[in-house]
Design a protein around this nucleic acid. Structure first.
Lengths: 225, 225
DNA sequence: CGCCGGAAGATTGTTGAACAATCTCGGGTT
DNA sequence: AACCCGAGATTGTTCAACAATCTTCCGGCG
């Protein structure tokens, strides 16, 4: 989708919906389009054009920009403008540093009642796999890892994980998405749930840690190509 | 310190220093005064008075407010204004949820070269203890826990820990500070470093977890009084 | 032919002012 | 004493202007 097409899309939205908390609404609009891949990493977000399309002032748009910047979804270059973030190899390393810290620790956390949630996600992932539904598999994978961290029951940690997962979506958009990437992880996730149900927490954490290492290496290889 | 005195103080600062990135500078000024306890939890931050004192526009001040709000340092009530945050019992529980998750896991992390940093902090804490220097002990304690999380080597995790520690400072300011609160933790921290130096990571993590539970209970009891 | 200033145009950074919406406080009524 | 309502004050939101910086294009020079 080109920048101009996104502009037209935004303009349509602006007319039909009324926005409470305009700045946050603008941020949400941009975020959803970036995460859906309609705005590709590296695209410049021109202020004047977006203001016009959304029917908001530059001031409001810039407020939205600062919010997206804090989420690492967007890069600001002084006096040059804002661009959809383009994760580097270092960014990927940082993402996995956080994930390798959070997720195995969350697995060890004796999360009480998350098991049926996890089972449901696995079921959805398998259904997507047999249909060859790539976005479905990707979504289920994100849901899975989010649910893992949710075991800790902390809002702050959930927010951090959400940010990291959002950045992961950018990583996928910024490289030529290998359609088969998510497929093997469906059964890896299933195995983790199995180990959890068997009460083998340490084994599940170990397996997850190794799996994260593998995924990181795979993404780094793809990005440096 | 009263609100008016802080205003005079800010006005003096505004004239002598030049600010790059005005919004961030304003946020830093307010943050430092809040964390130093000059602005007490519950104080209202009136827009017009602060604008005048700082010599910035309301627009800029509000930008600073949103930054502080994101850090949970400040509470926004729509159409009523912003107030220095006043941590509730639930806030304390959330803080310790994060700390109990991050810190023991970070201890287990085979952090390489953080030992001399930790040793230095312990030394400073003991020096403050013999002097009866309460702020010194509190500062060393914060440094210690920050250094623990730093072992993971992740910028995001460090930021999260910084935020949590900033909220901890608010907790101390919002309750009648028991001067002896920090004293026993000097030797508790020392014991953790000892266990780490002996390579007993699991024991160190366990001890730290119990210690956090104890501190949380102590703070909750003090707040609900 | 290619490279190096330099001015014009465009874009972003920052601020001040205006207007609308909401809250607070006082006075008056029942 | 409890309730209602209007004036004043404060916050939420937007617009418009100016300053600073970057980009582009052009002519001169080696």
């Amino acid at each position: 989708m080109t920048f101009d097409e996104v502009l037209a899309d935004l303009q349509a939205q602006a007319k039909t919906t009324k926005h409470a908390e305009t700045g946050l609404w603008v941020a949400a609009q941009l975020r959803s389009r970036i995460e859906a891949g309609k705005l590709k990493p590296g695209s410049k977000l021109a202020e004047e054009a977006l203001c016009e399309a959304l029917g908001v002032s530059r001031n409001t748009l810039r407020e939205a920009f600062t919010a997206l910047h804090a989420e690492h979804i967007v890069t600001r270059i002084p006096n040059r403008g804002v661009f959809v973030a383009h994760p580097t190899a270092d960014d990927i390393r940082e993402i996995y540093r956080v994930r390798r810290f959070l997720e195995p620790a969350a697995v060890l956390w004796s999360g009480d009642a998350s098991m049926e949630t996890l089972a449901g996600i696995i079921k959805a992932a398998r259904a997507a796999a047999v249909d060859g539904d790539i976005p479905g598999m990707a979504g289920a994978n994100q849901d899975f890892h989010r649910a893992i961290v949710e075991r800790a029951g902390s809002e702050r940690l959930n927010n951090l994980m959400d940010q990291v997962l959002a950045e992961m979506r950018l990583v996928f958009h910024s490289m030529a998405a290998n359609p088969a990437f998510h497929e093997p992880y469906v059964e890896d996730n299933a195995k983790i749930v199995e180990l959890l149900e068997a009460g083998k927490l340490a084994a599940a954490a170990d397996f997850l840690a190794g799996y994260l290492d593998r995924a990181e290496a795979q993404l780094l290889a793809a990005v440096e190509r």
